[in-house]
């Protein structure tokens, strides 16, 4: 709703909640972007700053949860207000995990950077590019309560799953042929897995945006469908 609530404190709480989610999203995306740049450009300092800055994202998650709880206790929001509070808290949880994956990538990057250059890091770039788009659109779906955009993310994530599988297959092959580089190749496998998980988190956020916009719960619908959707990569794939 664009109209103002009769209670100004309520409006202030809701505005602050949404602003904090957007701030958290921008920090999480920035962390991811820097983690990937540290990997591709062999920049250890950048990796260190990602690891150090993750606590800001954690703090925002706590703040968003507290604001959401305050709003629920004090104002008992209903309808679109209720959905915004619930979705914002879920967004915060998912964004915190995105930032955690950025930290994982940064940690792997630090280790990779300490060895000889690894040509295969370039394989992660297209995955990152797609995951970044999914993340951007998930955030747009939340900002605009755009259920259609949110719902479309699940299908788009399948391409990321496919690319991830392909990358794991390539890296697994090289593990056999280049045993001397196995440690770094394994680090890169975990980087790919983090990127793939970020795509899943974008899907989660898209699903939450469908609830925000249309009050529909579309989670886990693939498990009910008659034709199962591609499973994408699971942990066992990534570790195979």
């Amino acid at each position: 709703m664009t109209s103002h609530h009769i209670l100004r404190e309520f409006d202030k709480g809701m505005i602050s909640l949404k602003a904090d989610v957007l701030l958290m999203a921008s920090l999480a995306r920035q962390n991811l972007e820097r983690a990937m740049r540290s990997l591709l450009e062999r920049d250890i300092d950048l990796a260190r700053s990602v690891i150090a800055d993750d606590s800001d994202v954690d703090d925002l998650e706590r703040k968003i949860d507290q604001t959401g709880i305050d709003i629920m206790v004090r104002f008992h929001p209903v309808a679109s207000d209720l959905r915004l509070v619930i979705t914002s808290m879920k967004m915060a949880h998912n964004l915190e995990r995105v930032s955690d994956h950025a930290v994982n990538i940064a940690k792997r990057s630090k280790k990779i950077c300490k060895s000889l250059p690894l040509d295969e890091v370039g394989l992660a770039e297209p995955l990152y590019s797609l995951a970044g788009k999914l993340l951007r659109d998930a955030l747009m779906a939340y900002t605009d309560a755009n259920a259609e955009l949110g719902e479309g993310l699940k299908v788009r994530d399948r391409e990321l799953d496919r690319m991830h599988k392909q990358m794991i297959a390539t890296l697994s092959g090289r593990l056999e042929t280049s045993p001397g580089r196995s440690e770094n190749l394994l680090h890169l496998i975990f980087v790919a897995r983090s990127i793939e998980r970020i795509g899943d988190l974008a899907v989660n956020m898209g699903e939450d945006s469908v609830y925000l916009g249309d009050a529909r719960d579309i989670r886990h619908e693939h498990s009910k469908a008659s034709t199962p959707a591609p499973q994408g990569s699971s942990e066992s794939d990534a570790l195979a």
Binding site: M1, S3, H4, H5, I6, L7, F10, F75, P77, V78, A79, S80, D81, L82, R83, D214, A215
Partner: peptide, 18 residues
């Protein structure tokens, strides 16, 4: 009615923006 009202007037009333 309180999670997903169909009518904008209901939405405005229950959310207090009426």
């Amino acid at each position: 009615i309180f999670e997903n009202p169909k009518d904008p007037q209901t939405e405005a009333y229950v959310t207090g923006t009426f």
